[in-house]
Nucleic acid binder design. Structure first.
Length: 566
RNA sequence: GCACUCAUAGCUCAGCUGGAUAGAGCAACGGUUUGCGGUACCGUAGGUCAGGGGUUCGAAUCCCUUUGAGUGUACCA
């Protein structure tokens, strides 16, 4: 339910009736429950323009507000706030209506767009490490969310499969004669290190590696085959991680760096033609106003750099894929790079004016001491290891819980462990750095996935215990049920906000608030006790069912599973 | 050097298109169970929103400045 826009309409109507013109009507959540459910604060601004007393205007507006349907009560408070209460009958009706709705009352965006979401982007030369976690899960959430709201989403996994290091790797691969065998390449990190050692030690090998770089890039058959087998094996590792992470990225979403290789010279030509780039110190550069250093689009030795590849990718996404919104879910440290690339793409006409280019930046994962997250000896932490540890720890956290068969326990531990890692990450506003803490993320308390999953499991437990079909409507009987119903209906506004700002933590905060209200409701209002009237019992069961459905859907968008029993 | 980001309770974080007495969780202290999962719920205490100035009827939020932390800055991605 798009509550805010519905309320805006009601206010707009009232303003019209009162003969007051307003440009924009912004409805905000009430800051306190005693101030109602929502509030309209725009009167104060209007008062200034109209040079009138704000309270006077507010009273006038309030008089014209329709309180026969959605809104039950309005009042003017303070200097001119208009507080709005939603009607219980209306809430009951609307929540009852969405009981059978798979989308739990969430509609579609009015104007669906084609959106490219670029995320994950692992480097094929190395194993995925914790640094890839954020891009992968924030991007995946954004993609799932936009899709759910009705946009047409094209996922793009811009994997790093091109560059000088691959000469070294395939030369080593050939020498080891492993043929891209996944078994042999199990530890990519080690493979890379070994290759590097060989590279540094043997002049002969180093020359061969350099030779191979040229050979791949010029399309030499044997080298390309070796390269391809290496990429396949490496991608296989990534897919294992995606599987564990419950992330929706497949081979169809892969559009590697090498894919753009052939386009690079065309991009360069077009930049030269339009006099956007110039030669400086032998390199082809773009000098942007306000930047002291240029963006190099071609090295002095003729090689291309990532800025050129990104320009080619932007061109492809805007013109071939025809996206109207392109989101790059990449580390915040690359903000400057994207700002520059976006600017060049726009002035060079590589993407249309109407295409929105967004760098969805995120901060770094830190350890308890506030330093970048590393292993004890300073190495990178492999993502697979981190995820496996999460599942082990989850199993430990639930060992005294409800009875499970061995299979059930494994499944539950996976849902909880992986969910905890993802939720902990997604619940932090994405631009800031965050501190990784196992104990905190695997706690039943506070804003954690386990708290949500626990609430969900309790709801399922009630429904199991009732053990009959729940059929009947919702009645809003008291304050807490009112608050719960409002929270349930806020789901859509929350998702829309999260989609526009590309902020998964908007969803987690909402879910936490929802669950908190539900837990209060659960404490205050007994559901299955014998002396509860059937009609009320059904209504409360329905509210619980609906809450469960929203939790499930919300977590699903975050790529986190729920379980019926913990 | 220049540019960007950040600074909110002891800790971890929300709140930032300006709105009422700045909110959660953890940790501390106290309370609630014949009621459906108590790993729950309720309460107490804890704040100069880094410092200073400005704009405004109104600033954690916008602008300027100081301090502190981080990041990026010509041929890696």
């Amino acid at each position: 339910m798009k509550i805010k826009s519905e309320l805006s309409k009601i206010i707009e109507k009232a303003l019209n009736s009162a003969n007051i013109k307003a440009k924009e009507i912004v409805i905000s959540d009430a800051t306190k429950s005693e101030f109602g459910d929502y509030q309209f604060n725009g009167v104060m601004r209007l008062a200034k323009e109209l040079k009138r007393n704000p309270r006077e205007i507010a009273l006038e507006v309030v008089e014209h507000i329709d309180t026969t349907g959605m809104v039950s009560k309005v009042e003017v408070a303070g200097p001119g706030f208009i507080n709005i209460w939603l009607n219980n009958e209306w809430l009951a009706e609307v929540t009852t209506d969405i009981l059978d709705d798979k989308r739990v009352g969430v509609g579609f965006v009015e104007k669906p767009k084609r959106v490219v979401v670029d995320y994950s982007g692992p480097n094929m030369a190395k194993q995925m490490h914790v640094g890839h976690l954020r891009s992968t899960i924030i991007g995946d959430t954004l993609a799932t969310l936009l899709e759910f709201l009705g946009d047409e989403v094209i996922r793009q996994n811009h994997i790093g499969d091109w560059g000088t290091q691959f000469g070294m790797l395939i030369a080593y691969l050939e020498e080891q004669n492993t043929d891209g065998n996944t078994q042999e390449l199990k530890d990519l990190e080690q493979f890379y290190k070994d290759a590097k050692v060989r590279f540094d030690q043997s002049e002969e090998f180093a020359n061969k590696a350099r030779e191979y770089v040229v050979k791949i890039q010029s399309g030499h058959k044997h080298c390309l085959e070796l390269w391809q087998s290496f990429i396949d094996a490496s991608l296989g590792h990534c897919e294992e991680v995606y599987e564990k992470l419950n992330v929706n990225l497949t081979r169809d979403d892969v559009r590697a760096e090498s894919f753009y290789n052939e386009q690079l010279s065309k991009i360069l030509e077009s930049l030269k033609e339009k006099n956007i780039s110039t030669t400086s110190n032998g390199a082809e550069c773009v000098f942007l106003e306000g930047d002291e250093n240029p963006i190099i689009v071609q090295k002095s030795d003729g090689g291309f750099l990532y800025a050129t590849t990104d320009l080619a990718a932007l061109y492809f996404r805007a013109n071939i894929l025809k996206a109207k919104r392109i989101c790059y879910v990449v580390d915040a440290r690359q903000a400057q790079h994207f700002k520059q690339v976006f600017t060049i793409a726009k002035i060079a006409g590589l993407v249309g004016e109407d295409v929105s280019l967004e760098h969805i930046g995120f901060g770094t994962m830190m350890d308890k001491g506030g330093k970048p997250f590393k292993t004890r000896d300073g190495g990178v932490i492999k993502l697979v290891d981190l995820l496996d540890e999460a599942v082990v720890r989850a199993k430990d956290a639930i060992k005294d819980r409800d009875v499970h068969s061995k299979e059930e326990l494994d499944a539950v531990a996976k849902a909880i462990g992986i969910g905890a890692v993802k939720y902990a990450d997604l619940s932090i506003s994405r631009e800031s750095n965050y501190i990784f803490n196992w104990d905190k993320m695997l706690s039943f308390e506070g804003n954690t996935s386990l708290y949500m999953q626990y609430a969900y499991a309790r709801i399922q437990s009630i429904l199991r215990k009732y053990n009959a079909e729940v059929n009947g409507k919702i009645i809003i009987g008291d304050e807490i049920e009112h608050r719960l119903a409002v929270m349930i209906l806020k789901f859509e506004d929350t998702l829309v906000k999260s989609a526009i700002e590309a902020t998964p933590h908007t969803i987690t905060s909402y879910l936490y608030d929802l669950v908190t209200v539900f837990m209060k409701f659960y404490e205050l209002n007994p559901i299955l006790r014998d002396d509860i009237e059937e009609e009320i019992k059904i209504s409360r069961l329905q509210l619980a069912t609906l809450t469960g459905a929203v939790i499930k859907k919300g977590l699903e968008i975050l790529g986190i599973e729920v379980v019926d029993k913990i």
